[in-house]
Amino acid sequence: MAKAFKYGLKGITGYLEPAERELLRSLIDDVISMLEPEERAGQDPLAALIGLDMDVAAPSDRAVLRLLPDVMKNDDDASLEFRQLTERSLRETKIGALRAAALDLDKDELVLTGDGPRHWSMALNDVRLVLAERLDIRDEEDAGHVHLMQDWSQAEDVESYLALVYNFATWLQESLVQAMLASMETRR
C-alpha cells in the first residue's frame, strides 16, 4: 500500500508500490498524449517557437477543454484569440510538470524537493480532471457517488475501476497538498 506524503527534514517524501507507480505512470502518459500539440504541415516554425498557434481551435474533447479552458465566458472570439497566443505554452507547462512527476516515479525513493511538489500537485490535479471527465463528474453529488467506491474487490467494470483510480489519485494529491501546506507553514 502507498503511504501518504509527509513533510520532513529531507523534503516531502512518499512511498508507492511498484504497481501503483505503474498505474500513475500510465495515467500521466495518457494526459501527456492528450496535451501534446499535433504537428501540422506548413506550420510557421518561428510562430511555433515563440508559442503562437494561429490555427488553434477550442478542444472538442471535454477533458482537454477542462485542461485548457476558455479564458472568457460568453466570448468565443476573445477566448480563441487568447488561445492563439497562450495555449501552446500552457500545454508545455502542463506537459513539463507531468514529465517531471513521471521521472520521479523512476527513482527508488520518492523524495520531492525544489519544484518537485508543485509539479506533482499539478500533474495529479490534471490526471484527476481527466478521470473526472471520463467518470462524468459534473457536480458535488456526482463526486460524492464516486467517492463511495473504495473497495478494489468491487471493481467489476471500467467505470468502477476508474472510480477507484480517481479516489486513489485524490487521496494521494490531498496528502501531498497537506504536506506542501505544512512546509509553507514552517517557512513563514
Binding site: P69, V71, N74, F82, M122
Partner: peptide, 24 residues
Amino acid sequence: VERHAVAMHGFGLWATVEKASGGP
C-alpha cells in the same frame, strides 16, 4: 489578469477574466 488566468489554468483551476465594471 490574463497572465494570472494562464497560471491558474496551469494549476488546473477554472479561471476566467472579465471587465470589472458592467460585466457579469
